[in-house]
Simulated assay, not measured.
Amino acid sequence: MKICLWVSMVLSVGLFTPAKAVDLRLLLTETKQSGGYQVGDAAAGFRLKGTDGSMVSLNDFNNAKGVIVIFTSNHCPFAKAYEDRIIALNNKFASQGYPVIAINPSDPATHQDDTFEKMKERAASKGYGYPYLADDAQQVAKAFGAGRTPQVYILQKNGAKFTVRYIGMIDDNPQDPAGVTKLYADEAVSNLLSGKPVVTTITKPVGCAIKWKN
């Protein structure tokens, strides 16, 4: 009953329009993943293959002030809606020490748009200025506790550790960039750069459920 009411509310505010139809199952399906990092935890290192063919690890960013890790995908309508905003985040903050690292944990057997070749095509066509990594084994997504695409984890470099400072949405309007009122990721990084605490540390991500391999 509660789910039906929630769906009615979502439809009434126009989140799903004919031009951007989304299978509600992508949003409502519960994922098997649980746990993962909490705010204040230190993230473990990882090493994944990027669309340029190189292997990229978290340790490659030891000279950065932090990183903006975003779990995303090619097929997801929400990820597509946020793509330009992800590019904008990197354009704004990479030069200030907080580059974006995009990771695709989606099973290409479920969505052919998420094959490595399609990832390469997408990165090239959009001119990503950040690494786009394939999490084939889905181990990094599981370690982080990611459940949806897109989902953001902002990590601050503290000594030898990358500490989680924010988890959740990029902003508060998946559908319309012009209607955004809360720039969660932007505000979190801006606060960290200013030496201030992150005010909003957790938000509930809205996006496509990650399909876990059996």
Score class of each variant (00 low, 15 high):
144 F>M: 01
144 F>A: 03
144 F>T: 03
145 G>E: 00
145 G>M: 02
145 G>W: 02
146 A>S: 07
146 A>N: 03
146 A>M: 02
147 G>C: 11
147 G>M: 12
147 G>K: 09
147 G>Y: 13
147 G>P: 13
148 R>N: 13
148 R>T: 02
148 R>C: 06
148 R>K: 10
149 T>H: 05
150 P>K: 00
150 P>E: 04
151 Q>G: 08
152 V>A: 07
153 Y>G: 06
153 Y>R: 03
153 Y>F: 10
154 I>Q: 02
155 L>G: 02
155 L>S: 04
155 L>V: 06
155 L>R: 01
155 L>Y: 01
156 Q>Y: 09
156 Q>C: 05
157 K>P: 07
157 K>V: 03
157 K>T: 01
157 K>F: 05
158 N>P: 04
158 N>K: 03
159 G>K: 12
160 A>C: 04
160 A>R: 10
161 K>Q: 13
161 K>I: 13
161 K>V: 12
162 F>Y: 06
163 T>E: 01
163 T>S: 01
163 T>N: 03
164 V>W: 08
164 V>F: 13
164 V>D: 08
164 V>P: 05
164 V>E: 00
166 Y>C: 04
166 Y>K: 05
166 Y>G: 13
166 Y>V: 15
167 I>C: 07
167 I>H: 05
168 G>S: 10
168 G>P: 10
168 G>L: 02
169 M>Y: 14
169 M>G: 10
169 M>I: 15
170 I>M: 06
170 I>P: 10
171 D>A: 09
171 D>L: 04
171 D>H: 12
172 D>T: 06
172 D>V: 02
173 N>E: 12
173 N>Q: 10
173 N>T: 10
174 P>N: 09
174 P>E: 12
174 P>Y: 15
175 Q>K: 14
175 Q>A: 12
175 Q>V: 15
175 Q>G: 14
176 D>V: 13
176 D>P: 13
176 D>Y: 15
176 D>H: 15
177 P>T: 07
177 P>F: 04
177 P>Q: 05
178 A>T: 14
178 A>M: 12
178 A>P: 14
179 G>L: 11
179 G>K: 05
179 G>S: 06
179 G>T: 11
180 V>W: 03
180 V>S: 11
181 T>F: 10
182 K>R: 09
184 Y>T: 02
184 Y>G: 06
185 A>F: 04
185 A>K: 03
185 A>Y: 05
186 D>Q: 08
186 D>A: 07
186 D>N: 13
187 E>K: 09
187 E>N: 12
188 A>F: 04
189 V>S: 01
189 V>H: 04
189 V>Q: 06
189 V>E: 00
190 S>A: 11
190 S>N: 04
190 S>C: 08
192 L>H: 00
194 S>I: 07
195 G>D: 00
195 G>E: 00
195 G>Y: 06
195 G>A: 01
195 G>K: 00
196 K>P: 11
196 K>E: 01
196 K>F: 03
197 P>Q: 01
197 P>V: 02
197 P>K: 01
198 V>R: 00
199 V>N: 09
200 T>L: 12
200 T>M: 13
200 T>Q: 14
200 T>W: 08
200 T>A: 10
202 I>G: 09
202 I>R: 08
203 T>R: 05
203 T>G: 08
204 K>I: 13
204 K>G: 12
206 V>N: 12
206 V>C: 15
206 V>G: 14
206 V>P: 15
207 G>T: 10
207 G>E: 14
207 G>A: 15
208 C>K: 10
